[in-house]
Design a protein around this nucleic acid. Structure first.
Lengths: 208, 208
DNA sequence: TGTTGTGAATCTCTTCACAGCT
DNA sequence: AGCTGTGAAGAGATTCACAACA
């Protein structure tokens, strides 16, 4: 039932479809065709249908397409929606603060509940509703709160050490903004968001 | 010579290799084996050798591996390094300001030279060395400065309009932080950095 | 021996094409 | 007529495996 083994690319597109479907729902649209969902998600109708197959959804009809609500429910079931997820953030610099603000406004299942920094001036405060602790208390706080996901927004030189501490504390999923690859034990799932690398790619492909 | 047609994944890894190589260079290491570069980049030695093939680099020897400097030079040549690239940013919110700060500190070929926002309170100032203009002057300023790459950090609802204005102004590469896919004419290369989607993916794969 | 450079095999993802349905 | 669901084909990326070499 709970379909593990969905390819990463498909998971990415499913979150996209869900956002599009929610918006369509708000606009009063109850059904959608694969080619519409495709256009709104920058992909092909065949890709949409294939993705829906991979979550075993087959509630579409030639007449009306897919029911938006049913589709959202199926994606929710696969992606464990609803279950609120606590996040720990390490690195309260400009990016860290932007993330704190972003997650305090945005209603989302992800909640930044603890932030950490080595700079004593930054700890003790509450920023965007999130308490800031000294880096040394990372393991303790993360364990107490039962936090499973972490966000790294420290300089590249500190990222590996921070990530290792996170793993030590029981974190099993890491979003890394530092421009350095993390080497971590297999069970930990880490993903990198590398702004400069992405720009480099854009520059390469845009400038012929 | 200037090898267009390199796969996106390879371009990504090449920027990574280059960063690793620069660091090794600074540490006095003059040569590197494919398996070392692989370990430091979270990939396989076969992948490294394959990637180097795709930029026609074959300066490795069984005895010492690859010369770091030569390899960096080849990657630079392929990725058009050195050529400073001006960026326009639209959306001076928390993320926008974090980006302005990031690029003012970071020495890099990418320079944020103009920022735009619809909020009159935010324009006229200079933030992190970057002048802030009203959104209406986007086309004019971008054309005058000859800016080719843009960064979108506005709310999802405004992103499509902003991107279209960018294209109107002659921008051909866009980095989009808004959680909505952009639909743009083919010659424009747009890439999305979607923080929530990435978290969703991490949650899915990390939590069983 | 240990490594590079590379054809071939494998694996993964995407697109095609069409039977079946409404 | 137009769409869904899906097997089959195609394209792309990664890994294997080994000849050539220092």
């Amino acid at each position: 039932m709970s379909h593990r083994g969905i390819p990463a690319r498909t998971v990415e597109r499913l979150t996209l479809y869900r956002r599009v479907l929610r918006r369509l729902g708000n606009e009063g649209q109850t059904h959608v065709f694969s080619h519409q969902l495709a256009t709104l998600s920058n992909t092909s109708s065949a890709q949409v249908r294939r993705d829906l197959m991979s979550v075993s959804f087959s509630g579409g009809t030639p007449k009306h397409g897919y029911p938006a609500a049913g589709l959202i429910a199926r994606i929710d079931a696969v992606l464990d929606a609803g279950e609120e997820q606590k996040l720990a953030l390490v690195g309260i610099g400009n990016l860290g603060r932007a993330l704190l603000s972003y997650f305090s406004f945005k209603q989302s299942k992800f909640k930044l509940v603890a932030a950490f920094d080595k700079d004593r001036d930054k700890v003790g405060r509450v920023i965007s509703g999130c308490r800031c602790y000294p880096f040394e208390s990372l393991v303790e706080v993360v364990r107490e709160e039962g936090i499973k996901l972490g966000v790294v927004s420290v300089p590249a030189a500190a990222a590996q050490e921070v990530a290792e501490q996170m793993v030590e504390a029981g974190i099993i999923g890491i979003l890394n903004f530092a421009p350095t690859p993390l080497r971590l034990p297999k069970p930990v799932f880490a993903e990198q968001i590398d702004i400069t690398m992405t720009l480099e790619k854009i520059a390469y492909f845009a400038l012929k």
